[in-house]
Structures are given as structure tokens and as C-alpha cells.
Design a protein around this nucleic acid. Structure first.
Length: 377
DNA sequence: AATATTTGACCCTG
DNA sequence: CAGGGTCAAATATT
């Protein structure tokens, strides 16, 4: 009974495939548009322009491949194979792919800046928001690597909207202000399982999904796998854009406090360091690794290397924030009470990876059942 | 057996 | 009251 459901999720139905292909094409169009609108900004960066063109070509090529092979992802894969990194397991330590990621990250930041200016307040996040990001992150080759440029700290730093909770009537938890939220759009894997949420190098545990009024696709709710262990309040919501099947809007809420490093204490009760450094965050090219995540299958050497290469992979404090939220009714509030939001920078340089592997590696016995303790009344 | 996901119900905020 | 967010039992997966 439920198995069928699962199957459904795993293998795409024809109409869905079609829709995806369609979306892919639209995505390509969008990228082209974005490129057009950002031509000026990128004028000084021929490389980027070139790359953008490349991406666009790839997206269309992918779409074409799909159309031709309909359900044979092979062709698609081939198209992408031309990318620098070998098929799927690029051996990297400092290699090209990483650099590529870095590059993307950097570019993205620039784009973000530009966008923020453009957004100047509250533009409908339609074309604007997606604009640069997709243009740059939309690299099919990048996607092939299995992850997403997760940490592009994006716009909307303020909990605009309904964050306001004038006078606290609820002793509960009206500190929505503390909840840093940030929304960003990330491209979904175009090949393979597009149902997979964008990977951002963190281990998340899905705890809910809900249909959202006015949205075509449901919103999935994730929390940090180590929530209980480290009182890590990090959460994220993932939802496809109504108009773009291939783009996820990811909202990060709160930062990871579950970071740990060889030097840092296991318990990171960091002082209330107001992380007002969101802009700085953008300064770093946060990169993600091709981490299968959820399923610890990343060779140790891999994450180690990424750690030491300082890929700016804020292992645990990576993405965070995001704004889609609305009523941030933090339930686990009481536990995660302390504003314990370690300074991101600190997190990034101190923390090692946070992929499940590293966790297991460092904490062989992580037997926490957050569920056990964190019940509602 | 342990862990992760699904999903309907419940709770909270606006 | 409606809608969004979270819980937690049931179910899947490894």
C-alpha cells in the first residue's frame, strides 16, 4: 500500500517526466533571460558570461536529450559529461570541480548583491530572486555533482512580513527575531531523482510536509538530524517554485549549533554572538560537496579534504536563515533556548564537516532520541 | 533492529 | 477561523 506510494516517488511517471522536461526548457529560457538582464553586470566577467552561456546550452541540451530519449537519462548524462569532472566520482581534493563550485559561489554572491539592490525592498521574488542565482547555479554540470550551492546566503535578511510580534502576549516563544531565516532558490537535480531535495552538506531529517495554499507543490519541513544532540535549532523548508519545477525554494531557519571540530568542545553552547554578519557570510564561497548525505557513503577522505581545503563549507552552520517563515512557532524553543547562534564565521572555521559521516566518526555513539524527550505537553 | 519517512492530527499565530 | 508548522504513530527502508 504505502510501498506503491514509495515507488511512485522513486520512479517517475510519464506525465511527470514530461512536465519536468517542460520545466527544464522553461528553466533554460529563464536562464537566458537572466543572462540577458544581467549582461551589464557581468560585462566585466567574460568568464562568467561564458559559463552562463554554457549552462544555458547544457540545460537546453539536457531538455533535448530528454525529449529524444524520453526516459533514457543516459543521453542527458552524456551531455553533461563534458564537464571537467569525471562522471560522478570526481576525485577531488582541490580539484576543478571544487574550484568550479567556488567560482559559482563567488559569482552567486555578486549576483546576490546585485539582486539585493534590485530588490530594494520587496519585489516579487519571481524573476528577480531567481535571476542571478539560477543563472549561475543552474549549471547542469554542477548539479550532476549531486549537490547544490547551498550556502548562498540570500536576500531577505529581516524577518519581514509577519515577524512582528509587538507586545508579546505569549510567554511562549515570540522571539521570531532570533530565528534567522533566509530564503534562497536552488536548482533541483535535473537528472535522476528530481524529487531529492537539494543537498547542502547537512544532514536533515524530514519531519513534515504540507500542502501550501496557493502553491502547486507541497512544502517539506526538515530539521537538523542532530537537533537533540546539540540543541541544534537549524531547520529548513523546501518547496518547489510554482512556476519552476526545477527550482527549489529553500528556507533556512536558524543556524546549526551542532558544529564540532577537532578543537571545539562537543557541546557548543556558544555565547550569544549576535550574528549580524550575514553580509560577511556572503563573502565566502560556501560550497557544497557531492555528498550523498543521508546515506553515509562519502569516503572519509572526502570530507576530510573538504574540511581542510577550507572550502568554506560551513559544515554545520552553512545555510541558515531564510525567510519564508511566518509564524515561527518554535516548539523546541525551550531546549534551544539559548540564542546560541555561534558566529557563523567561527562555525565555519572551527567546525569540521557535519556530514553524517563525520558525525559518526567523531561521535560513534549518538544515541539520541530527540523524540523521546521533546514532546509537546 | 534501528533509523528514516510518511501522513493525519494537533497546536499556534495572525 | 484558516493556514502554516510540528508531533508522533504507522510504515518503509537499510
Amino acid at each position: 500500500m504505502f510501498k506503491s506510494e514509495t515507488d511512485k516517488a522513486k520512479r517517475k511517471r510519464p506525465d511527470q517526466t514530461m512536465e519536468e522536461t517542460f520545466s527544464l526548457i522553461l528553466h533554460g529560457c529563464k536562464l537566458a533571460k537572466d543572462l540577458e538582464s544581467n549582461l551589464g553586470n557581468l560585462a566585466s566577467q567574460p568568464e562568467i558570461l561564458s559559463k552562463s552561456c554554457d549552462d544555458i546550452v547544457k540545460v537546453f541540451a539536457a531538455a533535448k536529450g530528454r525529449l529524444n530519449a524520453d526516459q533514457d537519462p543516459a543521453s542527458f548524462t552524456q551531455l553533461l559529461r563534458e564537464s571537467p569532472s569525471s562522471s560522478q566520482q570526481p576525485q577531488q581534493s582541490t580539484d576543478p570541480s571544487l574550484q568550479e563550485w567556488l567560482k559559482y559561489g563567488v559569482i552567486t554572491q555578486a549576483m546576490d548583491m546585485i539582486q539585493q539592490k534590485v530588490l530594494a525592498g520587496k519585489a516579487p521574488f519571481e524573476t528577480n530572486e531567481m535571476g542571478g542565482k539560477n543563472l549561475l547555479e543552474g549549471s547542469a554540470s554542477a548539479r550532476l555533482k549531486g549537490s547544490v550551492v547551498g550556502e548562498i546566503q540570500a536576500m531577505e535578511l529581516s524577518d519581514s512580513g509577519r515577524g512582528s510580534s509587538s507586545s508579546s502576549q505569549r510567554p511562549r516563544r515570540s522571539r521570531k527575531d532570533d530565528e534567522e531565516k533566509r530564503t534562497m532558490t536552488v536548482p533541483a537535480p535535473q537528472m535522476g531523482n528530481t524529487d531529492l531535495p537539494p543537498e547542502d552538506n547537512f544532514t536533515w531529517r524530514k519531519y513534515g510536509q504540507k500542502e501550501i495554499l496557493g502553491s502547486r507543490y507541497p512544502r517539506a519541513y526538515y530539521r537538523c538530524t542532530h537537533q537533540k544532540l546539540y540543541n541544534c535549532p537549524a531547520k529548513k523548508q523546501v518547496q518547489r517554485l510554482d512556476n519552476d519545477f526545477y527550482t527549489f525554494e529553500v528556507t533556512y531557519i536558524s543556524q546549526h549549533t551542532c558544529h564540532m571540530s577537532s578543537t571545539a568542545p562537543s557541546i557548543p553552547p556558544p555565547p550569544p554572538l549576535e550574528t549580524g554578519t550575514q553580509d560577511q557570510i556572503m563573502t565566502q564561497a560556501m560550497v557544497s560537496q557531492p555528498t550523498p548525505a543521508s546515506s553515509s557513503s562519502v569516503p572519509l577522505g572526502r570530507w576530510l579534504s573538504m574540511e581542510f581545503n577550507s572550502l568554506a563549507s560551513a559544515s554545520c552552520g552553512s545555510g541558515s536563515g531564510g525567510a519564508g517563515g511566518s509564524t515561527a512557532s518554535a516548539r523546541y524553543g525551550r531546549e534551544v533556548d539559548y540564542p546560541a547562534v555561534a558566529d557563523l564565521a567561527d562555525v565555519m572555521f572551527n567546525s569540521g564537516s557535519s556530514s553524517s559521516n563525520s558525525m559518526e566518526f567523531i561521535f560513534p555513539s549518538v544515541e539520541d532520541k530527540w523524540e523521546a524527550g521533546d514532546k509537546k505537553n
